[in-house]
């Protein structure tokens, strides 16, 4: 009886139904009518992308002068998984009760958190999921935490107003959610907030957290934030980070 082949982390490949088959599925549109020539062009594209055994599963007319393709191919590229390093949010995942307990015992006062959807962005779905009482996917929002004073400022908050508010309310952390990303508007707005905070001497007094469907932690750090959270983030992920970062800073101050 032969055993199934085990994964080789030094030479990682996509998995279809057999280890190391390298199966990949891709879909795209070519701005030409479906035709045998269009099909061949699609095959050649896939080959140039490094795929072998290219199979055109679908070629369909998606409008006059547009051919849509679904393609399968096998890749020979491999990745050394053991050498991969990723910048990650540095915090242990904790539950709401644990977080409340830590704040109560180690900080002794409520942490003040302001959340907003900034600039012209009116899509509050993300900030609402993190802040509002109800939360997201069974994970209660920050408003529900006994030891957090979390306030959702809603949509279209200007960066300068957000900082004014942070000063007025003595905030400990700012959460910014951006959904609209056309022309990289989210990145411009993130950077603008940090620039303004620096000018006002607020950069290191506050914990800056970014969020949104197209936001990643490395992108946020690049924009000058302390951390960033993307799709699928739960309120307790964000709270875990803020509490840990707050305590970390306090300890650094003592040193």
């Amino acid at each position: 009886m032969s055993q199934a082949k085990q994964v080789n982390l030094k030479k990682l490949k996509p998995y279809g139904d057999i280890m190391d088959d390298g199966t990949v599925q891709i879909a795209f549109t070519l701005p030409v009518e479906p035709s045998p020539e269009a099909r061949e062009a699609a095959v050649q594209f896939a080959q140039q992308m490094g795929f072998q055994n290219v199979k055109i599963a679908t070629m369909d007319k998606a409008g006059n002068g547009f051919a849509f393709f679904v393609i399968y191919g096998n890749t020979n590229f491999t990745i050394d998984f053991t050498q991969i390093e990723v910048l990650k949010v540095d915090a242990k995942k904790r539950s709401r009760d644990e977080i409340d307990e830590i704040i109560k015992t180690k900080i002794g006062r409520k942490l003040i958190i302001l959340g907003a959807c900034t600039g012209y962005d009116a899509h509050t779905v993300g900030i609402d999921a993190i802040m509002n009482m109800k939360g997201f996917a069974g994970d209660y929002g920050l408003e529900r935490y006994q030891w957090l004073d979390a306030r959702n400022l809603g949509a279209q908050v200007l960066n300068e107003d957000l900082l004014d508010m942070a000063v007025k309310e003595n905030a400990d952390a700012i959460l910014v959610s951006k959904v609209v990303t056309q022309h990289e508007i989210h990145i411009k707005d993130f950077k603008d907030l940090i620039e303004r905070a620096k000018k006002r001497g607020l950069r290191d007094k506050l914990i800056f957290v970014a969020g949104g469907p197209r936001v990643t932690h490395p992108l946020s750090v690049e924009c000058g934030f302390d951390a960033g959270f993307g799709v699928g983030t739960k309120p307790s992920d964000v709270a875990s980070y803020i509490v840990e970062e707050f305590i970390r800073r306090k300890q650094n101050q003592k040193k």
Binding site: T29, D60, A62, F66, F68, T181, Q182, P213, V231
Partner: peptide, 13 residues
């Protein structure tokens, strides 16, 4: 939805 404004193929699908 939640990724980008629709591509031609998204609408067709």
């Amino acid at each position: 939805e939640a990724m980008h404004t629709p591509l031609l193929q998204d609408r067709w699908m």
